[in-house]
Design a protein around this nucleic acid. Structure first.
Length: 419
RNA sequence: GUGGAUGUAGCUCAGUUGGUUAGAGCACCAGGUUGUGGCCCUGGGGGUCGGGGGUUCAAGUCCCCUCAUUCACCCCA
């Protein structure tokens, strides 16, 4: 009875070496850039009470049918986080982080869960890096988070991202625009696709990014002509700041984004190599989110970035720099001596492998040739005289070195290797 | 969620109109070298042909279901 051969659940994956190394690098890269901008790392639970995410949007797939929501054995209604912003907002309120006067900058890096149909670059569990900036109404804040995200993309080695931006207005001007859209689309309701008909009164802005009714949306009213003066100044200032920083961004009047909490600025950045996975990162301003989580209204902007997508968009995979590894090989009878020596080298901070199978010297060196740059051979005549053989595997040269000077010899070799 | 494609060894793939014990390259292991890797030679291990059911004397090959991956939608990171 063999039984079921278990596999990872659909849309999830094991991250094996060296992919795991790449993830590690991306975590370091993204968080170190966030630190440069003054963002503090926050880690929130993967599980939240479902209410945290329920206000994200009545008409969004992420909330409607892509969530992993369940009731646990004690009756708690829980959800695996589908995105970071709402969870960070909850933490912001819970810990009274807004009690300070100055802006609060927070960043995160971790797994998100959405029950989508998997594809290349779309997973049910994926990793997001994100940053959230609380406490500033200024366009300087919007530009800062976008510039941070673009810096990260740049630092990862991805050139020419395609950045699109829009403003969907504020509480003063959005209602009029919304009304105008409802009127416009209602007149053409019969021609709309099923999804759009359903969304027409719930969230008419979403009809703008429908790809089915392209002709209809093209002549739909542009939000630009409804912006109040403050909104107009805001988006212009944000775009100017980004361009002054030497980054390219274009306004896309159809960009609205799925989550309902956005106000004014929304942005999305893609890359041609991503194909149908539109977004590398996306975000916007969400001045109303804290209030919808029953807290005080605090202005905020932020973004989420898909790490797997960023990695897949890179022109070449990141390669691990070769470090000088040492392989301790042993001659017959010196197995324990080699084992002890390896321990000592590790304690001195050297990356060291050694044989665990009591193999022939030939087999050990073959293994060493694959994984290490230097082989230290323990045993035999030299060992009896208090010395070992150090073989440089890339050059094919070797020397006999006394055990008491082995460490300094190896360190010298490492220096040469770096120079 | 909708429609299409694919699924043979660790990896990349062959496998002819259904027909004996399912192959190659790379990788892995051993020997050729009593204490020395990378090249070469010889040999070796490894596959329920994604899984289940059906048609047939006979199925990797045909049919159905299922799982997984993937492409286009949908949507997003």
């Amino acid at each position: 009875m063999a039984g079921e051969a278990f596999q990872t659940a659909r849309g999830t994956r094991d991250v094996l070496w060296p992919d795991s190394w790449q993830m590690e690098q991306m975590r370091e890269l993204t968080l170190s850039w966030a630190r440069r901008y003054g963002y503090e790392l926050i880690e929130t639970p993967i599980l939240e009470k479902s209410g945290v995410f329920l206000r994200l949007g009545e008409a969004t797939d992420i909330v409607q049918h892509e969530r992993y929501r369940f009731v646990d054995c004690s009756g708690d209604d829980l959800t695996l986080r589908p995105e970071g912003t709402a969870a960070v907002a909850r933490a912001f309120l819970q810990h009274g982080l807004g009690d300070r006067e100055e802006p609060v900058r927070l960043c995160y890096f971790g797994p998100m869960f959405r029950r989508e149909r998997p594809e290349a670059g779309r997973f049910r569990q994926h990793t997001q890096f994100g940053a959230e900036l609380y406490g500033s109404h200024s366009p300087l804040a919007d530009a800062e988070v976008i510039l941070l995200a673009l810096s990260v993309v740049d630092a990862a080695g991805l050139t020419q991202p395609e950045a699109r931006i829009n403003s969907i207005g504020c509480a003063d001007c959005r209602p009029q625009y919304r009304q105008a859209l409802i009127e416009y689309f209602s007149e053409r309701e019969a021609q709309l696709c099923d999804d759009c008909q359903a969304r027409l009164h719930q969230n008419p802005l979403r009809l703008l990014d429908c790809k089915v009714d392209v002709a209809i949306r093209e002549s739909a009213p542009d939000v630009e002509s409804f912006w109040c003066n403050a909104c107009r100044d805001h988006i212009h200032a944000v775009m100017a700041l980004i361009e002054e920083a030497g980054r390219r961004v274009v306004r896309d009047r159809h960009l609205v984004r799925g989550l309902d909490y956005y106000t004014r600025t929304v942005f999305e950045v893609g890359h041609p190599r991503l194909g149908s996975q539109v977004a590398l990162f996306g975000g916007g301003r969400y001045d109303g989110l804290t209030a919808s989580l029953n807290g005080p209204a605090v202005p905020a902007v932020g973004f989420g970035m898909g790490i797997e997508r960023l990695l897949s968009a890179l022109p070449q995979p990141m390669t691990r720099p070769v470090t000088l590894r040492i392989y301790v090989a042993h001659l017959p009878g010196a197995e324990r001596d080699g084992y002890r020596l390896a321990q000592r080298l590790r304690a001195e901070g050297l990356e060291t492998d050694t044989d665990l199978l009591d193999r022939s010297l030939k087999a050990q060196l073959k293994d060493a040739g694959r994984r290490a740059r230097l082989a230290v051979i323990v045993g035999g005549r030299e060992w009896e005289q208090g010395a070992v053989v150090v073989r440089d595997l890339s050059r094919g040269e070797q020397a006999t070195v006394g055990t008491h000077e082995l460490l300094s010899y190896l360190r010298t070799k490492i220096q040469e290797d770096r120079g």
